[in-house]
Design a protein around this nucleic acid. Structure first.
Length: 267
DNA sequence: ATGCCGTATGATATACGA
């Protein structure tokens, strides 16, 4: 029996209830981690999402910006909402699943336009955020930890995670300093990139296409910003991974698409 | 690299996304 864990930056959960229903029909995620819900907790569309089969819902929202949530068919335990970089924003939510599997859902700062921490506070925040997350996991590192880290990490680390490595080297999301910061995070708990575990690095794969491109599919100038990582204790449990590219073509789409990973179920 | 689109907001322009 497998468990299917998905991550999706929905860019407003209130506008994406139908899209989430469609994902439930097509891919049947057991656990769905959302980012950029953009809504305060009181206005989260809890009922509509419960109706889709998610009996267990945890949220960490704020007004207008950010916001993360975990929707689950399976019971959730030990819910935590951590602040990072001393800010009160809603960019993290963690829960435990059966067998002590600990699931962390992150929305890492986008970083603004200028890839220079001296000139751009948002970029500095992004780098600081990744460094802090790396330190946090490094301090908790243990061989038997069964951890899953998902989310919109806002970095496309590999050459084939972007449509043109060369043309994006100075574009926020693919600059060497961000890739290095993400590598620190990756090494902090010897993570495995679940998508690249199944899809070779020679193959281009994206999870985000700008709204501004007229024909996203034709130009296909995407980036892989959304990730699912697991710690070594869970790597043997990996069963499959899929980036749901077609979701970018659905009605009123998010600019990100879901990433779904299957693992042999815990317990 | 730009695009000039989509979302939210005490809104009818502005901030933000990346």
């Amino acid at each position: 029996m497998d468990i299917r864990i998905a991550t999706w930056n929905v860019n407003s959960v209130r506008l994406r209830v139908d899209a989430i229903a469609r994902l439930v029909e097509s891919h049947a995620p057991d656990v769905l981690c959302l980012q950029e819900t953009k809504v305060i907790d009181d206005e989260f569309p809890r009922k509509s999402l419960t109706r889709l089969g998610f009996e267990h819902i945890e949220i960490h929202g704020e007004k207008g910006y950010n916001g993360v949530a975990i929707l689950s068919r399976l019971p959730l335990d030990k819910v935590e909402r951590k602040g990072w970089c001393g800010k009160p924003d809603s960019r993290h939510l963690s829960v435990t699943l059966r067998d002590g599997w600990e699931l962390h859902n992150f929305y890492i700062p986008a970083g603004g336009d200028v890839p220079d921490p001296e000139q751009n506070d948002k970029f500095a925040h992004k780098l600081d955020f990744m460094a802090e997350v790396a330190r946090w996991f490094a301090a908790r590192r243990h061989d038997n930890n069964r951890l899953i880290l998902v989310g919109d990490l806002n970095v496309a680390p590999l050459e084939n995670d972007v449509w043109s490595h060369k043309q994006l080297l100075k574009v926020v999301s693919h600059t060497p300093v961000e890739v290095a910061a993400m590598q620190e995070m990756y090494d902090s708990h010897d993570w495995t990139d679940a998508v690249r575990h199944f899809i070779p690095v020679s193959e281009k794969i994206y999870s985000w296409w700008s709204y501004r491109a007229r024909e996203w599919e034709k130009s296909d100038r995407g980036r892989r910003l959304d990730h699912v990582w697991v710690t070594p204790a869970l790597t043997p449990m990996l069963r499959g991974a899929e980036v749901v590219r077609e979701a970018r073509g659905w009605d009123r789409p998010s600019d990100h698409v879901p990433v779904v990973v299957s693992l042999q179920a815990p317990g």
